[in-house]
Design a protein around this nucleic acid. Structure first.
Lengths: 124, 124
DNA sequence: CGTTACATGTGTCTTTTACATATAGCGGCA
DNA sequence: TGCCGCTATATGTAAAAGACACATGTAACG
């Protein structure tokens, strides 16, 4: 750790971003629970959940393959639709369980942050 | 990125831990707003806020010095109290502003996570 | 005198995230 | 036809964040 650098440059000033670690993983699983999709599609829809302008595509594709390796999603090449070949991902039962674990973890995180914010307000 | 490894081993099974990035920074600033303290003291009190069993001491001391370098905290050796010499940290006005930015960022993070959780519940 | 608790620190590796670049299909248009 | 922009997937690598291991010294207690 080298310093308070979570602040990112935005139009001439530094902002603090409070993001949940590895949040793209649950976000991606949630989108896939709603319906199967391919990477580029997820790339466009992820910001709804992450609040980021865009998710790093390189990391997204690697994450998808890592999730597949561990059996949380499956994929197959989709040659039916036009345009360049796309890999269609779907969530597996193991993926649903992982998502559930994420949800529980996120609820605990909410409670922690709530406690923090209340403590901040209480004694200001 | 190599895969979904935010899951940590705990008694034979893997758990997902949803933590806010760099959360020790605001936690530490909040504790210092309440009263000046030295590193070891903060180390013991941080888990109240972070929910972790303990915060990495190495990183904590580095973070404290980084925050001091950027003017968010000040410190001085405290020779008055007995025992080994301790460095007493206090928050500065800039530190208070940084804490405020963290609070705003954390509120936005809460909203994002709320949206995520509602969307999870809505369509299950 | 050895052990434990207090207190501050450095070194270094791994994991996570960011940034840059490569490759290729296809549609439109000048 | 040749170029551009959008779709789509992917690799390489640097930087940031976090984890783990170890070093150093004081002081209290038995």
């Amino acid at each position: 750790m080298r310093g308070p650098r979570a602040r990112r440059h935005h139009g001439g000033h530094w902002r603090v971003f409070a993001r949940v670690e590895r949040f793209t993983e649950p976000a991606l699983l949630l989108l896939l629970r709603e319906r199967p999709a391919h990477g580029y599609d997820l790339l466009e829809r992820l910001p709804e959940l992450t609040g980021e302008q865009r998710v790093e595509m390189g990391n997204l594709y690697r994450l998808l393959r890592a999730l597949e390796e561990e059996g949380f999603v499956t994929s197959e090449w989709d040659a039916t639709s036009p345009g360049p070949a796309k890999r269609r991902y779907a969530i597996t039962p193991a993926g649903l369980k992982l998502l559930e674990q994420w949800v529980e973890a996120l609820r605990r995180s909410q409670e922690r942050t709530d406690r923090f914010l209340r403590r901040y307000e209480e004694r200001r």
